[in-house]
Write a protein that binds this DNA or RNA. Sequence first.
DNA 1: CGCATGACATAGACATTCTATGTCACTACC
DNA 2: GGTAGTGACATAGAATGTCTATGTCATGCG
Lengths: 112, 112
Amino acid sequence: MRSSDRSSIPQGTLDMLILQTVAAGGEMHGFAIADAILEQSGDVLQVEEGSLYPALQRLLVKGFLTGEWGKTPDNRRARYYRLTVPGRKQLGVELAEYRRVSGAILRIIQPA
Amino acid sequence: MRSSDRSSIPQGTLDMLILQTVAAGGEMHGFAIADAILEQSGDVLQVEEGSLYPALQRLLVKGFLTGEWGKTPDNRRARYYRLTVPGRKQLGVELAEYRRVSGAILRIIQPA
DNA sequence: CGCATGACATAGACATTCTATGTCACTACC
DNA sequence: GGTAGTGACATAGAATGTCTATGTCATGCG
């Protein structure tokens, strides 16, 4: 009985959403990124942990984020992610591509 | 040297685009559907045959389309697809969900 | 007659998200 | 002061769906 009206993240957009969230929020740890995406999307886009951490790993490996271990205010270990310069550039590329494609889809689904 | 600026279809949107195209164009065969999507999207969304036909099969099996064999004007065999009543309803569902999710993404990527 | 082409079709690769599960340490409570 | 809850990170495996590559078949044309 999967009763949530929250949606899964469309494939290909998760990296962009993470980069954008870190760009806007500065230094954040994983949980906080997922929380911010959920909240800012109006409770629609829920990032599961099994999607979040592999995505963060990808972004680390590609050099778009740095991740430094630290402590949360209540003294728990956490990894703090920050956008790199190539990460900011990559965000721009992904935003442009997303807008291009979603614009194209709009032209189809909006009755001219 | 893959030099095209055409994009792949975001996962999950192909069925919606096909249903919408058939809804707008009436009776169409596969090639014509792909052509219409490419053209209406402003040359952005190119549906490959290896994506198109499996998608059409899915939609046939689910009863959202009917497909009747016929002949093109130049006498080639072709399968003509038409939207069913459940297909029209499904299109409405997918449009609503797409708008809900893309709206949520917009709230994140558009600086408030 | 042979070749290009329109149209349909399938198999396999690939990428990405999800479900499910696990770990570890800190906090709080009885 | 042990035990349960929880924050946070992590991985393995399944599911999904698009793409690349390939194949077939018949028609039209040179």
